[in-house]
Amino acid sequence: MTIPAPPDQPNPADHKPAGQDPWGPPPSGPALAHFPPHPMLPAPVAPVSNGMGITALVLGITGVVLGLVIFLFWMSWLPALLAVVFGFIGLSQVRKGLANNRAMALTGAILGIVGLLIAVGGGVFAVTMVKRSADDTRAKADEAKASASSAEKDRHLSFGETYTYENGLKVTVAAPQPFTPDEYAYGHAKGNKAVQVTVTVINTSTSRVSVKTGLPDVNDANGASAELVIDGSGRQKVITGYLLPGKEAVGKYAFSLPPDAAGRIEVEFSPDAMRWNDAYWSGPTS
């Protein structure tokens, strides 16, 4: 018995080959076509980044150049240090396959190390030179101080000793002698002790020398300035004017001292107070 097909639907029996059961399993057809597997696509390649190596090389060169300049070596340590850092980062990227400029990165790192060594060496050299300069300056200052102290000591003499100035004048102050002012004396108080100071100046140079300040200063035993005595006896003589080579000038001056400070005096004298320091002669009075 055959079941009729629904309307508008083909009857399966119409498509079955003759002699085949229309309701049986379909006959085995030809095998499906075999397609070869898709070929594997290549893995994506990471982009090459050579920036670290290039930066290391530039910074390394900069560090070395700055280190070789005398006044700029102190600036070389920073680019040199950065060159070492970037150089090692660049080498790490080369090992990971992210860069291919190994020689550039290695050169930058090496130059950075050289720059650091130059910076350290320059710093040590600068510190050494500054210390040496400071030591020299201190030594010169000590020498000048010692020389000044020695010169100051040399300018303090006893009566009868001679001091020679740089212009060739030799000055000697003799021990003070008693002086009796006349009745018309000026600067001598009654009861004081008057003394006479004799200054001898000899020109040992080969040219004439001006003696502009031929008046000495006298301090008594208390350090007070003694009064200059002027009388009409004509015994006082002031050194002034020019002194010819080999010539001698003698000055005589009288001073009045208070009785309680007349036992010892100090005489200050300079042939030219504007150019030469005073020399000092001291000792007891007669």
Rank of each mutant, 00 (worst) to 15 (best):
Val94His: 06
Asp135Pro: 02
Val195Thr: 01
Asn192Tyr: 03
Asn101Thr: 05
Thr128Cys: 00
Met104His: 06
Gly115Leu: 00
Ser133Trp: 08
Ala126Leu: 13
Val58Lys: 14
Asp142Cys: 00
Thr55Ser: 15
Ala144Arg: 13
Lys247Phe: 01
Val173Lys: 02
Tyr186Met: 06
Gln9Val: 14
His156Ile: 11
Val229Trp: 05
Pro47Ala: 14
Pro79Asn: 08
Leu169Asp: 06
Ser92Lys: 09
Ala109Ser: 12
Ser282Gln: 09
Pro245Phe: 01
Thr204Arg: 05
Glu268Cys: 07
Thr107Glu: 02
Val238Trp: 00
Met40Trp: 13
Phe179Ile: 08
Tyr242Arg: 05
Asp260Ala: 08
Tyr184Arg: 15
Met75Ala: 12
Pro284Ser: 12
Met52Cys: 10
Ala226Ser: 02
Ala99Ile: 01
Gly232Gln: 13
Leu106Tyr: 06
Leu66Gly: 07
Thr62Arg: 11
Ala80Lys: 02
Ala80Val: 02
Glu161Tyr: 07
Ala185Lys: 11
Pro245Leu: 00
Arg138Asn: 06
Tyr163His: 15
Tyr165His: 06
Ala43Arg: 09
Ser158Gln: 15
Gly19Asn: 14
Tyr163Glu: 13
Thr204Met: 03
Ala141Pro: 04
Ser49Cys: 09
Asn203Val: 01
Ser133Met: 07
Ala56Ile: 14
Gly223Pro: 01
Val85Gln: 05
Ser49Leu: 12
